[in-house]
Amino acid sequence: MFEIRPASPADRAALYRICLETADSGEDATHLYRDPLLVGHIYAGPYLEFEPDFAFVLEGGDGVCGYVIGAPDTAAFEARLEHGWWPALRRRYPDPADVPPDLRTPDERLAHLLHHPHRANAAVLAGYPSHLHIDLLPRAQGGGHGRQMLECLFAALREAGSPGVHLGVGGRNTRAQGFYRHVGFRELARSPEGSLTLGLRL
């Protein structure tokens, strides 16, 4: 039996664990990072901290096995992180700016992101101001749970007045791309490296 429920502060460790175990284009990235918390600091923690009304977890079997998290106003969320989330992490993780990008370790690449976080494209935000991340462990995949979790978040975003939501997906993660297109997302932009920005009207 699986159950979708609002996330709580007590779910923080589970979100960080799932974030790490799906960080390699949907596969387990535990072996890639020396610091197991770095991925979660960027892609999970700030949502639980600043947008708890838009964070849901999937619980079943041995505990929490998936989550969907988002922010209704991406620009405002980025501003809040700049003042209330990144500064403390930047003190803990030095910027490896003196290390050439192609020589950085996976940890150093994430540390660089802490100091130079991604900023959403203004053209995308004009029609799709919200954004989300969703990750499910293998045992929770394939049963329609991902779609159900997205619908929970979509309902919360609609209630908050959002007209559209976007997300990013890596070029290698063809399984995720297919899933997002199946639930209604369409391509909005593609980076030179091949990663996609997909959007859905709410």
Rank of each mutant, 00 (worst) to 15 (best):
M1E: 12
M1T: 13
I4Q: 01
R5G: 09
P9T: 02
A10I: 01
A10E: 08
A13T: 00
A13D: 08
L15N: 00
L20Q: 02
T22V: 13
D24R: 09
D24E: 14
S25N: 14
G26D: 03
D28E: 03
H31L: 15
Y33R: 03
D35S: 09
D35W: 01
P36M: 10
L37I: 02
L38Q: 00
G40Q: 04
H41F: 14
I42G: 00
Y43W: 15
A44G: 04
E51M: 14
D53M: 10
A55N: 07
F56N: 02
F56Q: 05
D62G: 12
D62I: 04
G70D: 10
A71M: 05
A71G: 04
D73L: 09
A75T: 05
A75D: 13
F77A: 00
L81E: 02
H83L: 11
W86R: 01
P87V: 02
P87H: 06
A88K: 15
R91A: 15
R92I: 08
R92H: 13
Y93S: 09
P101A: 15
D102G: 10
L103A: 15
L103W: 06
L103T: 04
R104K: 11
T105F: 12
P106H: 11
P106N: 09
P106V: 02
P106A: 12
A111F: 12
L113T: 14
L114F: 14
L114R: 04
P117E: 03
H118E: 15
A120R: 06
A122N: 05
A122W: 10
V124N: 04
L125K: 02
Y128T: 05
P129G: 07
P129Y: 00
S130G: 15
H131D: 04
L132T: 00
L132K: 01
H133C: 02
L136P: 01
Q141S: 04
G143T: 01
G144Y: 11
G146A: 09
Q148W: 01
Q148N: 05
L150C: 06
L153T: 01
L153A: 06
F154S: 01
A155R: 12
E159W: 11
E159C: 13
E159F: 08
A160Q: 11
G161Y: 10
S162T: 14
G164D: 06
G164Y: 08
V165K: 04
H166Q: 09
L167R: 03
L167A: 09
G168H: 10
R172P: 11
R172G: 03
A176Q: 03
A176V: 07
Q177W: 11
G178L: 06
R181P: 04
V183C: 13
G184N: 08
F185S: 05
F185H: 07
R186Y: 09
E187A: 13
A189R: 14
P192G: 11
E193L: 14
S195V: 02
S195A: 14
T197A: 12
L200W: 08
L202G: 12
